[in-house]
Design a protein around this nucleic acid. Structure first.
Lengths: 246, 246
DNA sequence: AAGTGGTCTAGACCACTCA
DNA sequence: GAGTGGTCTAGACCACTTG
């Protein structure tokens, strides 16, 4: 229970642990833009005093947020808000590697964007109802000038209002989410074998019907609600998909 | 610095943090079989007293080990050593799912096991030298009686001495590691498209040269050293590979 | 009621960074 | 030398499980 940056527990009912309430309050400062990317935030002691909790509790909240990739703490320097569009973090949902092990992100070319009512597949993957609206974005990803993956992304319009009116629309969901005050958590990606459709084959200079990898990815926010569904299709002749497991 | 379950810091040189020393000591009790799978271990206070640290420090060590999947803590009940061969944990490196989302582990059929000097590929993936010995194991994985994946695994003989003399050799690396006192950490898996070799095609009832998924996986111990390299090959017509990302 | 882990406190001291 | 996060202590109280 949170009132004016002061956290209280009624003592009568089971309350959300203090350190989680603190985390929520701090996270909303980041999401709301009150604390900007790369900015230093007050030190542990000051924050603890401000929220009326012990420094141990504040530390637990901050440690948790570091694990959620919202903050970076550096001994002797301070605590900083992570910039989700930094080189390091912007690629965290891209798991394609070149043969030499180097991460392949490539550049994106926008093919089209449109708005529609969610189809059954989108309803299932994004947990929407049939009358909910989605953005649909088609893109091609290039590596050294060569197209290697066709992408079809869907996002709830409710989360990204006015997306098509942006002059320079960012292509990465990570950057987009930061702009719209959405804190991203984990995603899951289904990798399977498919056959190149004529349009995919043409875009990637492949033989129609030939084998391709299909990357079916859903990215969630910190609460686990779907934010983006993306279908990626490519041959990945001299590339591989890298998963960390265990 | 650890002497007779008593942890001391010299104060003069930089020492490994206490909670990490405690973690190492507790982990070696599990690896060494002193604490058996599913057994309850002493409570926080008793352990803290035994090691001469505060309960906060002991808690930090225990929390860390819970994150490493060595322990499970349950409020009101106690702290328990995880059984790595339990249904829940034994499958943690298996990421194949059926079309309905159900995890597919299947049964393993052993085709052969042999010992050899590590080839260049094994040296690279397992960080061995050319004169190091490896076990090579060939298996086929069945789902509802149907073979769907051919597996070729390599493991350092130094980690698994006498492996071929076991009467009932366990197939899962997780179970094997627990028997040999190896604590597993994370793994990485490379997923790519390949073509079915004649032998693979025959084993799986596929067309030779047809597209298959190749799963190239290395499992490490808690220190990050490679324990097993496995190549899995299959078509996965009605299955997909699921990766958790972010 | 007894025992467990989970939360929370209010400090101390250390290691690191930077002006 | 001042300021930061990292480690560590020695408790208290709460929530949960079990006999």
């Amino acid at each position: 229970m949170l009132t004016n940056n002061r956290l209280v527990s009624t003592g009568r009912f089971t309350t959300r642990p203090l350190y989680l309430q603190v985390r929520d309050a701090l996270a909303s400062r980041i999401a709301g833009g009150e604390w900007k990317p790369n900015a230093a935030i007050p030190n542990e002691g000051d924050l603890a005093r401000e929220f009326g909790v012990s420094s141990g509790t504040m530390r637990k909240a901050l440690d948790l947020m570091e694990g959620e990739r919202l903050l970076t703490r550096r001994q002797g320097r301070g605590t900083f808000v992570n910039d989700q569009s930094s080189d390091e973090l912007a690629v965290r949902f891209s798991n394609i590697r070149a043969a030499d092990g180097e991460r392949v992100t490539g550049e994106l070319k926008l093919l089209g964007i449109s708005q529609a009512s969610a189809n059954p597949a989108e309803c299932g993957r994004l947990r929407l109802r049939p009358d909910d609206k989605v953005w649909r974005i088609q893109q091609v990803r290039l590596h050294r000038g060569e197209p290697f993956m066709v992408e079809e992304a869907s996002m709830p319009v409710s989360l990204f209002p006015g997306l098509d009116e942006q002059e320079a629309m960012p292509h990465r969901i990570v950057v987009l989410a930061q702009q719209y005050g959405i804190l991203l958590g984990k995603g899951d990606e289904r990798v399977s074998i498919g056959a190149a459709s004529p349009s995919v084959a043409e875009a990637l200079n492949l033989k129609a019907g030939g084998p391709i990898l299909v990357l079916d990815r859903v990215v969630h926010n910190l609460d686990g609600h779907p934010v983006e569904w993306r279908l990626g299709m490519g041959h990945f002749a001299d590339k591989y998909y890298l998963a960390e497991i265990g």
